[in-house]
Design a protein around this nucleic acid. Structure first.
Length: 210
DNA sequence: CCAGACGTTGTT
DNA sequence: GTCTGG
DNA sequence: CCAGACGTTGTT
DNA sequence: GTCTGG
């Protein structure tokens, strides 16, 4: 599926979209986000995830992660870089995720929501291909990712800042894409990098995951 | 037992 | 980390 | 997944 | 055309 995206969202705007309580939702590394209309694997993308402060205290975080998952057990990052002969890990099929050694271990506690303005699908026209941009049709109405996992709960809105949130970003609503992430520690022990994969699944289920 | 994989898209 | 194949 | 490069000489 | 980099 998606191998290209568009991103204009700033870290601050992502934080408002992520919702929660402004005091609880932090950003991390969002200065690495760049406006791009042709965003691909290896670029930084905004990820909304839940952080366990303690057993009882959960907080929400918007974190810039690189697109393309490197599992924590990887010996070399290249082994999970499809463009260097490794496994292709910037997309995942949801149908088989539960029976995959690679994905299964991430399904419970490494879920996230990835924010994109939209993504491209390539339509074949005989010998050439034409990019079709896919995004939400509607304008952004201040909808935020809810805290509750209950599906029957009404979507929450940011009553006070709905107007403000339209100021510094695109008018249309962002896409909420389901993702899995992991944290990979380099063998030399110095660096830590995070990476994610997009997991293709319906929006309704994405929201229940948050 | 150890070694090696662990994935995706799109197609004649 | 965890499973499969040899 | 697409975009972009694709090279040489001669050197503190 | 083919490979690398993002």
């Amino acid at each position: 599926m998606c191998g290209r995206g568009a991103l204009t969202l700033s870290g601050d705007r992502c934080r408002r979209i992520a919702g929660g309580d402004g005091r609880k939702t932090k950003t991390r590394g969002c200065e690495r986000l760049r406006t791009k209309y042709n965003l691909g694997p290896m670029n930084y993308v905004p990820v909304v995830r839940t952080v366990e402060e303690s057993a009882e205290a959960l907080s929400r975080e918007v974190c810039a992660m690189r697109w393309g998952l490197v599992p924590s057990f990887a010996k070399r990052a290249e082994d999970f870089d499809a463009f260097k002969g490794g496994s292709s890990t910037f997309n995942a099929r949801v149908e088989g995720a539960e029976s995959s050694n690679l994905w299964r271990r991430l399904l419970d506690r490494r879920r996230c929501v990835v924010l994109f303005d939209g993504f491209y699908e390539w339509k074949a026209n005989g010998k050439s291909k034409t990019p079709m941009f896919i995004r939400n049709r509607d304008e952004y109405d201040g909808h935020t990712i809810p805290w509750s996992t209950k599906t029957d709960e009404e979507p929450t809105k940011m009553e006070e800042s709905a107007d403000e949130s339209k100021i510094d970003g695109p008018e249309h609503a962002p896409l909420f894409l389901a993702g899995l992430y992991d944290v990979w520690h380099q063998k030399d022990g110095l660096g830590i990098s995070r990476a994610l994969v997009l997991l293709w699944i319906g929006l309704r289920k994405v929201l229940t995951w948050t």
